[in-house]
Design a protein around this nucleic acid. Structure first.
Lengths: 342, 342
DNA sequence: CTGAAAGCGCTAACAT
DNA sequence: ATGTTAGCGCTTTCAG
């Protein structure tokens, strides 16, 4: 029943040669006779020898493993980024260990500690929604464990990160609304302390300025990015005396929920209220009307984060932190194009 | 720059005692003086000692790691099952390494080989869509690596698995359609060789019999479960002289795509064509009309798969393979309730 | 109660 | 070209 794997020792015994000869033969070391190499490799194949990775990790002090910390696996955006990370790391011979914080600051800390104890070679992290304090990353830095953030980031002057062009994207969307006849553009934002919220808010405001529209606090709502939170935020906006004629949402999930509530209350999308979301997940083109959304290159963001990390890992030197800003594209669908412009 | 971790040796040197005493002190071994234990633990905490997991894995021949093979991470169902697996394994002190086959038979084989080479303690697998040959699992069995399948399974007489009550669920849905006035009930199925396709098809047919409806090949379509495949299948059904008045879809994603096509062609849902999907992912209640769906206890399925695996792992004995069938629930929403029954 | 020693599987410097 | 040895960090007999 016990798993039993053949070791170099086994091969050596069988061939009546030393372990080091076997080791060398297997990796085609320069000074080994071709015949021996041949013979050893033959036997190794036949007995299905596989090196024990743990012996190597112990010896080399590296695990060829990367830890990933995300708020939640069951979210298109994160799953898709992971998919990009997986593709790049697999190519480079690294394994990934994934843990989700479930948007909890406490769990995020625990997970990071676990991953560090596992001695991963590096970490790729997206902050939990609750995380507003960044001291726990000191431990990682002191540890000299390379770290890269994506999407929800912090301490960017010390730590590399991959983010979307949130400011530009939000500014663009605001103009897009204006060009389509919207003048009361609302924004359902995420928690204020997150960089994505801040940057998108700034872009939204800049966009309003570009269009000569006035900034109104009434048109701003924050939510915890859950469907329920989005619903409440939407209700707040719909309670205004003068209702918004457009709603920008911090992500597609929030947009979906808001749209549902808006439709339930009898308003027409986009004619009464136009919609734009962030991410452009698969379902954006499935909902009714189809949702205009800021397309994030999620897979590429994952690849890029992995690339940054592995570069750092393999170049041993600390290097200067890099902040990679990925370009997004506004994918225009029905939800933002009013048939009857005012 | 190099990561440097303190070892038992370091602690021993500092305290001028032997490594084995340190080791014992740290795990509160019975025969160690309380004072020494105290002192050692103090120093360990202070110097932030953490055991090197790779040394232990080498010694114990176990990795406390479980490999997960899924068709695709960016799919609600799999992500959600993983989430359940993660929750259970974390509790039990195991890490998970996730790899996706991207529905490719070739990749599935490679991944499994990699995971085996990594010496994971066990594997949880959902077959790729292309997988119709199951010989590659011999390697795992020979290896004595415990294995559990979920959802898309094979060789259930030898290997434990967790599945939904596909037959009963499909039969139920068919009756549900009939009770709501549908008599030409179509089924957009997945690839024929998959157990989920076979079981749901059998349930569908049984349901038709229950209702005294006749079975027609015209009303059966297969697809590869992509949105595009679903669209093509839908077009085939809509091309019939006598169109279906209900469509059962192998999963929600297929249903979403089919609904989109049906609406695009000007048919009303549910009055012209009623819809039911499988999974009940989040978006089922976001689409318009909201989709009736067979709710899978995804998180629990993951937990159960992990439980089966870890039981097997820790009880060392092979044990008899178990097939756990999880109960589903039909969540009725607008898409299947015709306002005007015929 | 504590220490010495062997060994998990592997690599690499050091012989020969 | 091949063998010997030491050692990565840890646990666990075995001695004392």
């Amino acid at each position: 029943m016990e798993k039993v794997h053949v070791s170099l020792k086994d091969l050596a015994k069988e061939l009546k040669i030393s372990i080091s000869s076997v080791s060398r033969a297997l990796k085609n070391h320069p000074d080994i006779s071709p015949e021996l190499a041949q013979k050893v490799q033959e036997l190794a194949r036949q007995k299905n020898y596989k090196p024990n990775p743990y012996a190597i990790r112990l010896l080399k002090h590296e695990s060829k493993t990367i830890g990933i910390v995300i708020p939640d696996i069951v979210t298109y955006f994160y799953a898709s980024v992971i998919s990009g990370i997986e593709s790049y790391t697999k190519e480079k011979g690294y394994s990934i260990v994934i843990s989700s914080s479930q948007e909890s600051y406490q769990k995020e800390q625990n997970i990071i500690e676990n991953l560090l104890n596992l001695r991963v070679d590096g970490l790729i992290v997206c902050l939990s929604q609750e995380t507003a304090d960044y001291k726990h990353f000191d431990k990682i830095l002191e540890d000299n464990t390379p770290l890269v953030f994506f999407d929800r980031v912090c301490r960017t002057s010390e730590i590399s990160s991959v983010v979307a062009d949130n400011f530009e994207a939000a500014r663009n969307v605001t103009r897009h609304f204006y060009e389509n006849g919207c003048t009361r553009i609302a924004f359902i934002n995420g928690p204020n302390h997150l960089n994505i919220s801040k940057e998108r808010l700034a872009g939204y405001i800049e966009g309003l300025k570009d269009c000569g529209l006035k900034i109104s606090n009434d048109l701003l709502a924050s939510c915890n990015m859950t469907p329920e939170g989005a619903k409440v935020a939407t209700q707040k906006l719909l309670a205004l005396k003068v209702k918004p004629d457009a709603i920008l949402s911090i992500n597609d999930t929030v947009a979906f929920s808001a749209m549902k509530e808006v439709k339930r209350r009898g308003y027409k999308i986009p004619d009464d209220i136009a919609f734009v979301g962030f991410t452009d997940e698969f379902h954006a083109s499935i909902v009714d009307p189809e949702l205009t959304s800021v397309m994030h290159p999620t897979f590429e963001m994952g690849q890029e984060a992995a690339r940054l990390l592995i570069n750092q890992l393999e170049s041993k030197t600390p290097g200067t932190p890099r902040q990679v800003v990925m370009k997004t594209t506004l994918v225009v669908r029905d939800s933002s194009i009013k048939k009857q412009k005012k």
